[in-house]
């Protein structure tokens, strides 16, 4: 049994070792990489994908998938920006935007549980619907003129004791979600549902309710990422967040969470998001063309998953 525990630890360390290796290589290739400024900048870039990927971790742990995160991000951001530009109180606008995200996510959850639609299909459809609604609402144009509100500017551009606010938000979210997953009955139910949905149902777990909650959390986190993005750009783009679901899923998988559900951890997702962020940042520093960047990123994901498979077998 000791061996089992040991191999589990090794498996858990895998993503971290991978991250370390990439960091070392990049710091050798590019002396600028390890500068504090660059690292803070990197973390800020990572925060958007990380927030989405945290939600995605819950979804994937239950054996589901959410393809609509990028569209929820865009619609939530557009709604928030719309409210800001028409003079809403900024804090109220942000809260209403987050609520819209929770409602969009809950809708996903209801379609999946009550409509008994496979998560892939359900969120593929809502991805298109939410994107369409965003285009309708924005008339296909960016929303600008978001006012001079400090609270809103802080979301994307502010600092908290020298740390970018998006990074602070990411760390707070991580802490809360880690606690939920590890220490609460809700977290336990998430793992149980992913491991064996029928056994969970027969153990008195209200599976549908848990799933709706999970998709709802994911919607809210996506919109939070969207608001950060809007604040950084000082405008809401109708095409924001396109294909963000892929980076989020990649982060979850790189972190070692099983796509079939039941096994995984949110720390791994954090590391996975960092790996993707470090690659993006480092390849930029090295002046690698964005076309090649995609090839490298895809290759790394493939390599990580293959290594994971090898360990598992």
């Amino acid at each position: 049994m000791k061996n089992q525990a040991l191999s589990q630890t090794v498996q858990k360390l895998g993503p971290l070792l991978g991250l370390g290796a990439i960091v070392i290589i990049l710091s050798i290739l590019s002396p600028n990489f390890l500068e504090l400024n660059n690292l803070l900048n990197l973390l800020r870039q990572v925060s958007i994908n990380a927030l989405i990927a945290f939600g995605m971790t819950f979804v994937i742990l239950t054996g589901g998938i959410d393809l609509s995160v990028g569209s929820m991000l865009a619609l939530g951001a557009a709604l928030t920006a719309g409210m800001l530009s028409s003079g809403f109180d900024p804090i109220l606008a942000i809260l209403l935007g987050l609520m819209a995200g929770a409602i969009m996510g809950a809708l996903n959850g209801f379609i999946i549980t009550k409509g008994k639609v496979a998560p892939f299909i359900a969120t593929l459809a809502t991805m298109t619907i939410f994107r369409g609604l965003t285009l309708v609402y924005t008339e296909g144009r960016p929303i600008t003129g978001l006012g001079e509100s400090v609270a809103f500017e802080l979301m994307g551009r502010g600092y908290f004791f020298g740390i970018p606010v998006p990074v602070v938000l990411m760390i707070i979210s991580y802490g809360v979600l880690y606690f939920i997953l590890k220490k609460t009955t809700f977290g336990r139910r998430v793992y149980a549902i992913g491991g064996n949905e029928e056994a969970s149902r027969l153990s008195g777990i209200k599976v549908d309710r848990v799933k709706v909650a999970i998709y709802s959390i994911t919607g809210m986190l996506s919109v939070l990422a969207g608001i950060i993005l809007t604040s950084r750009l000082n405008s809401a783009q109708p095409t924001a967040g396109v294909s963000y679901e892929l980076d989020a899923i990649a982060a979850v998988v790189l972190g070692g969470t099983s796509l079939s559900g039941g096994r995984g951890w949110i720390f791994g997702t954090f590391v996975g998001a960092l790996i993707i962020g470090v690659l993006n940042n480092g390849l930029n520093l090295l002046d690698v063309s964005s076309f090649y960047q995609q090839v490298v990123k895809g290759g790394v994901i493939l390599l990580a998953v293959i290594l994971d498979r090898k360990k598992a077998s």
Binding site: Y191, N196, A199, L202, G262, R263
Partner: peptide, 12 residues
Amino acid sequence: DEGLVLDLSVRE
């Protein structure tokens, strides 16, 4: 199929 979550521990 219905009684246990095989991946989880005895405790869980």
